[in-house]
Design a protein around this nucleic acid. Structure first.
Length: 219
DNA sequence: AACCAGGAGACAT
DNA sequence: ATGTCTCATGGT
């Protein structure tokens, strides 16, 4: 009886409980956060979003109306601010051009995903974050934590690609359950942040709250 | 004081 | 298809 993705989920939920994701009030704020959190600590993203709120620029129109270098200043705390200013602008341009949330929400998930991926600056993870947390679509979001935890548990190869890992997870979980996908990704991030760390490089991740990854020093 | 953080695009091979 | 660079702030 080998470990399954569903068993991993149940263990994580038993250990940590509900995570109440995504941290954001409106769908648009969630989408902005998804872009800004690329390879960046969430605490830094919060500062950037606070800046946008402060100057009343937390809307597609306001972002498009602002000069890019001004936008970059607001995004500074989230890192990569020059690139992210362009990425956020690209996204907002597409978002408005396509008719905004109401119109986009009528599209099937496949078409919506393709549209997101066509935006320069929206890659597979950011697209799936938006699909799941802003549009409520049943999509499994893969990230660095997912790959690290599941590969250390021996479920997948460490070198597995994004789409292969996504298909593996979606194929071994009850489909159509956005609530499950929502909670699962949040739990993987939680466990990855505080227990299953990059270093020390443990061979396995025991999935317990008292995981040796947390306290042991490298040999 | 190196290492890490809820990636993605450009470019070479 | 796959590997390497770059982008950058803030916490540990």
């Amino acid at each position: 009886m080998s470990l399954t993705p569903l068993a991993v989920y149940q263990t994580l939920f038993a250990a940590y409980g509900h995570q109440y994701w995504w941290p954001g009030e409106t769908p648009f704020e969630i989408m902005v956060g998804a872009v800004l959190t690329q390879n960046t600590a969430w605490s830094n993203v919060e500062r950037a979003i606070a800046n946008l709120t402060q100057v009343q620029a937390l809307s597609p129109r306001a972002i498009l109306d602002a000069p890019v270098d001004r936008l970059a200043e607001w995004l500074r705390p989230s890192g990569y601010f020059n690139i992210k200013a362009r990425r956020l602008r690209n996204f907002c341009h597409w978002y408005v051009e396509e008719g905004g949330y109401e119109t986009l929400a009528t599209r099937d998930t496949g078409r919506l995903r393709a549209g997101l991926l066509a935006v320069n600056g929206i890659g597979p993870e950011t697209a799936d974050d938006i699909l799941l947390y802003a549009f409520g679509r049943p999509v499994f979001v893969v990230d660095a934590y997912t790959r690290r935890i599941l590969s250390r548990l021996g479920l997948v190869a460490e070198s597995i690609g994004y789409e292969d890992l996504r298909r593996f997870c979606e194929g071994n979980l009850p489909g159509g359950d956005a609530k499950l996908f929502n909670e699962y990704h949040a739990l993987l991030v939680r466990h990855g942040k505080e227990v299953c760390r990059p270093r020390p490089l443990c061979e396995r991740c025991c999935l317990a709250v008292e995981c040796p990854c947390r306290s042991d020093k490298p040999a």
